[in-house]
Every structure is written in structure tokens, then in C-alpha cells.
């Protein structure tokens, strides 16, 4: 037989337990490290060194903007802000000429980011590239210079 008082106590207990759960569960989930361990502000890991073949370019998400990571024919890494300084199109790597190219208005940049031809008014912003980790297994890290 459930008295009114008894019922109230059970209700209270249920309420306390459920609110405790609804507080502790988010806290527990919050404490678990998220997939990306830290905010990508000044640097981002583009990938493993083996993923990038010589004389290719790859677009990498760097914060809210794209960055272009270029591996030159002699194996060097270079990275730039991939936003064309003309009308903010995303630039790409042109393997035939080893240049960075914007398809929108044919802007061409060399591998130091300087404008070779076309409408871009300014050179591309240059990022720094570092290799981190075991030889052969290095992470390619792009960071703001």
C-alpha cells in the first residue's frame, strides 16, 4: 500500500536521481577528450609525410580557411593561405608548371607565393611547414609564420 507520503518520497527520490544523472552525464561527457584534441588556431596537422608525393599540392583546412600544402619536385614542403588575393577563390597547384594557380581569373603564383601573372594584387600569405615525429612517419604540420 503506497501512502501519499510514501509516494511523495519516492517521487522526490526519482527526481533527485534523474536530475543528478542529467547533471553528471553531461559533465562526464564533457571531461572525455574530444576527437580533435585542441583548437586548430595557429597550426594544423596536414597528414603523414608519405601522403604527399613530390610535385603535388593538397588543400588542407586551416581554421575556417583553406591552406595549400605543396611538395616540390625536390621533396621540400611549402604552405600558403589558399585564398587568392584577387577575389578570394581557392587556388590550386599546377604540376605542369610547378606554380600555384587560381582558376577563376588565371592568377599565377610562384612557389614563394609571389604573383607571377594575372590579376592578384598581393602575394599569398606564407605559412610555415614543420615535420614532427619518427623519421618516415612524420606529421606534416602547417603553422602561421
Amino acid at each position: 500500500m503506497v501512502t501519499r507520503r510514501n509516494f511523495l518520497d519516492r517521487l522526490l527520490a526519482l527526481g533527485f536521481v534523474s536530475t543528478a544523472v542529467s547533471i553528471l552525464y553531461p559533465v562526464w561527457r564533457y571531461i572525455i577528450p574530444p576527437a580533435a584534441a585542441e583548437p586548430a588556431t595557429d597550426s594544423v596537422i596536414a597528414g603523414k609525410i608519405a601522403e604527399f608525393k613530390p610535385n603535388t599540392g593538397a588543400l588542407v583546412k586551416f581554421g575556417t580557411k583553406p591552406a595549400i600544402l605543396v611538395r616540390t619536385s625536390d621533396g621540400q614542403f611549402k604552405a600558403f593561405n589558399a585564398v587568392c588575393t584577387h577575389l578570394e577563390c581557392t587556388v590550386q597547384y599546377k604540376a605542369e608548371t610547378s606554380q600555384i594557380w587560381c582558376a577563376c581569373h588565371n592568377g599565377l603564383y610562384d612557389l614563394s607565393g609571389s604573383v607571377v601573372s594575372g590579376p592578384p594584387p598581393r602575394p599569398l600569405e606564407v605559412f610555415k611547414v614543420n615535420l614532427r615525429g619518427e623519421p618516415g612517419q612524420e606529421d606534416v604540420v602547417i603553422s602561421r609564420a
Binding site: R29, P34, A36, P39
Partner: peptide, 19 residues
Amino acid sequence: EAYESVQFIVSQVEFGWLI
């Protein structure tokens, strides 16, 4: 990093927005 870390909390950390 302050702004980015708060952005990280609200968008990447589970229930970060709530906290």
C-alpha cells in the same frame, strides 16, 4: 587562442555549449 578555445569548447567538446 582564447577565442578559439572557447569556440572549441562550444563546438567540439561534448556538452561544452551547455557548460
